[in-house]
Amino acid sequence: MAFDISTLDLDAIERREAAKHKGSTLKLFAAIGFALLWIVPFYFLAISIFKSSNEYSRNPPLALPEGIAPLWDNVTRAWELGSMGQAMMNSAFYGTVGASLAVFFAAMAAFAITRLDIPFRNGWFMLIFAGTVFPFQMYLIPLFFGYQKLGLLNSHMGMLLFYTAICVPFPTLVLRNFMSGLSREMDEAARMDGANEFTVFFRIILPNTIGPMTAVFLLQFTWIWNDMLFSTVLGNRLETRSIMNALLVFQGSYSSIGPNIVLTAALLASLPSIVLFFLLRRHFMQGLQVQQS
């Protein structure tokens, strides 16, 4: 096809291109402005932890700190007043052990539901999944009194028991969906070779399910780490209280604590989940994808 370049209105094309370019630059600036607005509270947090109580109340909230020296004092005071070391250990214990056990139990249940030939397959699943249907408020009073009766109130074991239980149903859903998509050829072959179901589960299914198991583990770990309600109700004592519960202490008993220290405590309490997120972002996002299914 012949193409006569002289028939083109080059000026118009240039104008159009410029407009397009300008549009996308404008859009970029708008996006940057919006993102800045979104992170102002983080900026506020970041500078507040470098201020002494005095400086905080004297200077405007967005003013840069006068130095970085008060940070250490803020951290140590927050750490000591909230007994945050103990609380972090507790939450780390609940989070890692509770979420691991829950995901492992969920994998076992999902294996039975998807790979074994059983009646009422869906019924068993619905029974486990029913654990996600009710709002948390319905557990509070019965668990509080039940725990008191059984001597589990304010004990590490009691907290672990609850966290493990509450974290079972959702991973069961995810892992069931995942396992029913796994090819059956491998485990049939293994069974032919005389492997029993335990071998099939541990040697074949589990190694192939590591990806989604990591993803749901991260989601459940974060949930436990972030939980405030149940640790307030079931484990309010110093020895058993969780990190979020320790953070709440600053809202209560101490009216001589400045915002700089409370904000430092809030950041300290959040650091582990932030670090975890940036290290394992891919798995988190995978977790979101499975949440969707």
Partner: peptide
């Protein structure tokens, strides 16, 4: 036979969910 085996696999999840979550709901 498989159901017995399946119950072994499902029991931790079932016991936890029923004992710690569903029974409290009924109690509530």
């Amino acid at each position: 036979g498989q159901l017995g085996l399946a119950l072994v696999f499902m029991s931790p999840a079932l016991i936890l969910v029923v004992g710690v979550l569903l029974v409290p709901v009924l109690f509530n």
